[in-house]
Amino acid sequence: MTRSWTDLDDFQNFIDGGGIVEAVDDMPDDYRAEVFRFIEFHANSELMGGLTERDWIPRAPGVRLKQIFLAKTQDEIGHAHLLYQVAADMGFKDRTQMLEELFDGRSRFHNVFHYQAVTWADQIAIAYLVDAAAFASQRAVFAECTYGPYKRVLKRIISEEGFHMRHGEEMLLRLTEGTETQREMFQAALDRWWWPAVHLFGPDSDPNDPLLRWKIKSQPNEQLRHAYIQKYVPLLQSYGFRIPDDNLHYDDTFDGGKGAWLTSDIDWEPLKATMRQGGPDSRRRISNAAANYADTAWVREALQRTGAAA
């Protein structure tokens, strides 16, 4: 049954009362647009994340490892598949439009996937740092998510991302307990990926962020980022790695004596550059994806002409 609301206040009361919106509901236009934008961004990020991770799969240092990283990347592409469906059902764009805009450089995706994995250790840094950051963000969305189709898909995604996070921890421990070559490789990767991972949470949330008001997000960006730093600084230091932040320090007096790890003032310019498709690897990543999409167009077209949807 389609539900509707008299005005935004009526809708807000529904949300504040724990209501869940379904695709068939006559939801406010602003809610539909904001939620669609958020899910499309998430879908794009899963797909481009898979493309970031694929670069090193052919060179995986073991047959079993190759299988594992294939399965992980397959999960990410599977997440994109599910999310594009949820987004398409909102009625703004179909999947083809979303993909074409993405490959045309007109659509956004997470900052971290505008960077190149330079060595195998970057693959591990992505699995350890980026998957953990994404997991924390997604879990915070799942916690109160008011859009039913997204919440249901997130349940599965979070379960798989939790597994990826554990996999990242296991892979990091191998390097940590490994040879000097491996430890040096990971330190160099950490130097490259620490700040992008911190940036992933975004700048401090606007107190009027409609996604917080409508309970798509359950926590502001700064809270999630702070919690991530508190967890990963001591972990990485305990493994003997150096966080690439000369001003990083522990402040005993923070928050009335609770104490916290505090970083340098965060330079958000690299994040902003990625949102303009101007990240270090944006051009290559998008143009490669676009070229491949064009190269395989004949398959999609043939299936359409012969009556099978693609």
Partner: peptide, 15 residues
């Protein structure tokens, strides 16, 4: 075959 991950002609086929 693994080199095709992420490059399949459409998402279902990629999987």
């Amino acid at each position: 075959h693994a080199n095709w991950i992420g490059l399949g002609p459409f998402l279902e086929e990629d999987l």
